[in-house]
Amino acid sequence: MKALTRLLPGHGTLWLMFFGSVLAAWALLLATHMPVAAPHPAGDFGLAYLISLCTQSVADAGFGSAVAMWSLMSLAMMAPTAFPAFKTYSDMTCTEAASGTSLAVLVAGYLLVWIGFAVPAAFVQVQLAELHLLDAVGRSTSGTFSALLLLLAGAYQFSRLKNACLSACQNPMTFFFSHWQPGNLGALRLGLRLGAVCLGCCWALMLLAFVAGTMNLAFMALAMLLMTLEKLPQIGDRISAPLGVFLIISGTVVGVLSLIELSNGGI
């Protein structure tokens, strides 16, 4: 606790809760890769039940389980990417502009947007599974579908909306000054706006989970790292375009290979 206070002066308890929640989300995602017997629906609703919601295969998972999994993914992957913005707001609590409570409200507003994203993402997952376009670990079974997602994500890297959202994420101080609203209600609105900007920046990359597998921890960790680096002003501008080029090339290669497979009579 003292080390955390030295590294992040002020609101040590809040930061401990923040990082603890992120680590807990990663721990639960890791637990989904371990065999766990699901408890009776009317029985234990503790940790074992929560883990059981996400240990089913994607093909067998219902909408509720899918929402739980995507919510955990959002917390584990997206909360760390917004830490520079949260830290910037935290520094403002040294003045009378903000407070520790408003900081907590800001973070809650941000996470609310990504939990909201989990609902349509889960719906898409369920529909794709019913169409047999996803395997047991949530990975696309269609080369054409994978190619389209890769090309979409690559092209979006060069879009005006992506650039605008990324610029806001890279300059949180400017973002807060431009949209400042005082009080806890203002902090909630700022958090929601920050979450929306982050969603506008990263939604296409998040959908690549359907290519790598929605239960693929390696993809989650790599995507979190890339999205975090992309939001750092001195690094993000150097990797955003190359990442887009890489995704477009990957999508093209996957698409060509899929066409060749189809022409040869593959499924």
Rank of each mutant, 00 (worst) to 15 (best):
A223K: 02
L28K: 02
P80C: 04
V245L: 08
K231C: 03
A122Y: 03
T88E: 14
G255V: 04
T174W: 11
F45D: 11
S21F: 01
L229E: 08
M78L: 08
F63A: 05
N184K: 05
W203Y: 08
G109Y: 04
A85G: 15
L133F: 02
W26H: 09
C165N: 11
M224D: 00
R189H: 11
A187W: 05
V137E: 04
T81L: 03
V253K: 14
L222P: 00
M17F: 06
V105I: 14
I248S: 13
V124K: 00
G244N: 07
A118H: 03
C169Q: 08
A136R: 12
S99R: 07
N171L: 08
P84C: 06
A76M: 04
M227C: 07
T174D: 15
T228F: 15
L229Y: 03
F63P: 00
A164F: 15
F63K: 00
Q127I: 06
A76L: 07
Q127H: 09
L161S: 14
L8I: 10
I248P: 08
L232S: 08
N171G: 05
P39D: 08
M206D: 12
M34P: 00
L150F: 12
L192W: 12
A27E: 01
T144H: 11
S57P: 10
F19V: 00
N163C: 14
F123I: 04
W180T: 07
D60E: 14
H132G: 11
Y89L: 15
A42C: 09
T13L: 09
E130Y: 10
L131K: 13
G138F: 03
T228A: 15
M215T: 13
L192Q: 12
M69W: 01
L166E: 12
T95S: 15
F158H: 15
L222S: 13
V22Y: 09
L134S: 10
F219T: 08
T141G: 11
F175E: 10
G138I: 05
A3C: 00
T93D: 10
P233Y: 11
S65A: 07
A61Q: 11
S52P: 08
S178E: 13
G191P: 05
Q234R: 13
S52K: 01
S71G: 06
V113A: 04
A48C: 06
V253M: 13
S74R: 04
